[in-house]
């Protein structure tokens, strides 16, 4: 058996799935070849370390911890919203009162302007002195 075919079959050998003949020839090769020994050892160590890590169990209280964290986060966000609304409420009230005043004043000014514009007397007529105007009768009689 050469190194290449040995290393290809190492996985099934370690898992115990190799047939009897292959097992024998692999064992013989591993005893003779240091390079393949190293690869074999590397694979065994890797599998053993992974098995050890897989045996570890998750913290049994993890679901309680997660649910507590979620509840806390939701409480914090509710409180934050409440705090925000507590600060924003008077500010919004003041702003709406100021806006209403501004709209009222502007609307009033617009109304005054339009009414004065409609009823206003042309400037030339305003400057005219009625007293100094000649009577129409005088012109006719003349």
């Amino acid at each position: 058996m050469n190194c290449s075919s040995c290393q290809k079959q190492l996985e099934s050998f370690i898992e115990g799935n190799a047939s009897g003949d292959i097992q024998m020839s692999l064992k013989t090769h591993l005893e003779e070849c240091e390079e393949c020994h190293k690869v074999y050892t590397a694979m065994v160590i890797t599998n053993r370390v992974i098995s050890q890590e897989k045996e570890l169990k998750v913290n049994p209280f993890i679901s309680t911890r997660i649910m507590e964290h979620i509840n806390q986060q939701e409480e914090i966000s509710v409180n934050k919203n409440f705090e925000l609304s507590r600060i924003l409420q008077p500010a919004l009230l003041t702003a709406s009162v100021a806006l209403a005043l501004f709209i009222g004043i502007s609307a009033g000014n617009m109304y005054q302007k339009t009414t004065t514009a409609q009823n206003s007397i042309p400037e030339e007529l305003m400057l005219m002195n009625d007293a100094s105007m000649e009577s129409l009768n005088l012109i006719i009689t003349e």
Partner: peptide, 11 residues
């Protein structure tokens, strides 16, 4: 093959 802490760290 004895698996040590060094092996775990190496892997």
């Amino acid at each position: 093959i004895l698996i040590t802490n060094e092996h775990t760290e190496m892997i």
